[in-house]
Simulated assay, not measured.
Amino acid sequence: MPKAQETLLEIDLKALKHNFKYLKSRLNPKTKFMAVVKAYAYGNESCQIANYLQNLNADYFAVAYVNEGVTLRKAGITKPILVLHPQAVSFKTLIENNLEPCLYNKKILTEFIKALTTEYQENYPVHIKFNTGLNRLGFWQDDINFIINKLNETKKITVKSILSHLAASEDLNEKNFSLNQIETFKSLTKNFIKKIGYRPMLHMCNTSGILNYPEAHFDMVRSGIGLYGFGNSEEENKHFIPIGTLKTVISQIHTINKGESVGYNRAYKSNSTIKTATLPIGHADGIGREYGKGKGFVIINGERAYIIGNVCMDMVMVNVTDIDCNEGDEVIIFGPNASAETLAETANTISYEIITGISQRVKRIFTGC
């Protein structure tokens, strides 16, 4: 690829294919694969990512909200799409776009059946979520009879799958907790299937669940962060390739004399003569203020250049005193050789936050097509 001439996110589809194939290699061939493309495909651009994965025969897609699913349908995605956190106000749109809701409490189940009555639908596929320890969304075990009674009262819905979510699958110090979640899920689904009279698909594993708990792969797994190149552990990261490289350029180089300051609020005051580079990327692009004041860094000509002063809305300034560089040179914020995880750690956060936070005003380009 030519050197960057502006701020852009370069997305490597060959790396995406590699990550998909690696995750699939950890599964039984009969286990289905749900690609999680919520949050703009974790900041990478959902439509082209989903179409590429659809061509690779991903079985299902998952989004957080109905509008994300509508976007995929308009982009040509024909595979089933699970909406993980639907809101009742969007049920009509969900049905019109043949999206499949995750139903997680009594209110949302009741309201969806009501919406189907209005839309004259029958046997609509839904997914029933149980809370086994994450304590975020999901029915409780003692809600099973309520769900079964609701299902017996109507022919409007068919349970396509039963799901739950591991709370700490990446943390092997919490292995006993995860195993307890898995056993709870097995127990409640056995009870549910006995009462419903047919067997929906079962799925529980996220990326770290795929890697650490093969006994919980069941009928389908869900992967988000793994597709985008992160295995949630130093050992597993060796098998993944981050698909996104965030790049920018040096707009201007300054010589800052002793006693002079840099940026808003004079947050950096120099105690010697230094050289700074101003870059056209800031907190409006996803580089938060927490990366300022010497915490975060970028890579210029193979060297770390630390952010000094406060991050501005559209710009950051970095210390290039000991780096041989010029205006117009390419700058790497993160990528396969400068991990988003490492950058995120400087601000005491995680790779998920920095990659999903990249503003949509940042240009996306695709390679490996």
Results as ranks from 00 to 15, higher is better:
Gly357Cys: 04
Asn271Gln: 09
His217Tyr: 10
Thr154Pro: 00
Gln87Asn: 13
Lys194Trp: 05
Ser161Lys: 14
Arg26Trp: 07
Glu215Asn: 11
Leu109Met: 11
Lys21Thr: 15
Met201Glu: 13
Leu56Asn: 06
Phe240Ser: 02
Lys74Ile: 13
Ile148Cys: 01
Ala4Leu: 12
Lys114Val: 14
Ala340Ile: 12
Gln181Gly: 02
Cys325Ile: 15
Asn135Glu: 07
Pro242Lys: 12
Leu211Glu: 00
Glu6Ala: 10
Ala284Lys: 11
Asn265Trp: 08
Pro2Cys: 14
Asn326Thr: 15
Phe177Ser: 12
Thr31Met: 04
His217Ala: 10
Glu235Ala: 11
Phe146Asp: 01
Pro2His: 15
Asp143Ala: 06
Asn98Tyr: 02
Thr276Met: 07
Phe297Gln: 01
Ala344Asp: 02
Ile77Tyr: 03
Arg361Val: 13
Ile11Tyr: 03
Ile241Cys: 05
Thr78Ser: 06
Thr276His: 02
Ser164Trp: 01
Pro242Thr: 14
Ile256Phe: 04
Ser46Gly: 12
Val221His: 06
Thr342Ala: 02
Glu68Trp: 09
Cys102Asn: 12
Asn67Ile: 15
Ala4Lys: 05
Ile113Thr: 04
Ser164Tyr: 03
Met313Leu: 13
Leu23Arg: 09
Thr349Cys: 02
Ile243His: 00
Lys3Ile: 15
Ala50Pro: 01
Lys106Trp: 08
Arg304Ala: 09
Ala168Arg: 09
Ala4Asn: 02
Tyr268Val: 10
Gly133Ala: 11
Asn301Trp: 09
Gly226Met: 08
Lys150Gln: 04
Ile49Glu: 01
Ile332Arg: 00
Thr118Ala: 07
Val249Lys: 04
Val316Ile: 15
Ser46Lys: 10
Asn28Glu: 08
Leu103Asp: 01
Tyr306Asn: 06
His283Pro: 00
Asp142Ile: 02
Thr349Leu: 03
Gln181Arg: 06
Gln5Phe: 15
Phe139Glu: 01
Pro242Leu: 13
Cys369Ser: 14
Asn232Arg: 12
Glu236Phe: 14
Lys107Leu: 14
Phe230Leu: 04
Lys275Leu: 14
Val70Phe: 04
Phe177Met: 12
Ala344Leu: 12
Pro200Tyr: 11
Leu163Val: 15
Thr342Asn: 07
Glu119Asp: 04
Glu260Trp: 07
Glu260Gly: 04
Leu103Thr: 14
Tyr42Lys: 09
Thr367Ser: 09
Lys17Met: 10
Lys295Ala: 12
His85Gln: 11
Gly226Ala: 13
Phe334Leu: 13
Lys275Phe: 09
Gln181Lys: 00
Leu246Cys: 10
Thr117Val: 12
Ser46Glu: 07
Leu279Lys: 00
Phe130Gly: 03
Ile308Ala: 01
Lys32Leu: 15
Ile253Glu: 00
Ile108Met: 13
His203Thr: 11
Ile300Asp: 01
Ile243Thr: 05
Glu96Phe: 09
Ser351Lys: 08
Ala75Asp: 01
Gly259Asn: 08
Ser351Trp: 03
His18Asn: 10
Arg73Lys: 06
Gly43Val: 15
Ile11Lys: 05
Val63Tyr: 02
Lys74Val: 13
Asn206Val: 14
Met1Trp: 04
Ser161Thr: 14
Phe33His: 08
Leu137Thr: 14
Gly357Asp: 00
Pro80Ser: 06
Tyr52Ala: 13
Thr356Arg: 05
Asn212Gly: 06
Thr110Lys: 07
Glu170Phe: 15
Gly197Ala: 02
Thr184Met: 01
Phe366Ile: 14
Lys247Gly: 00
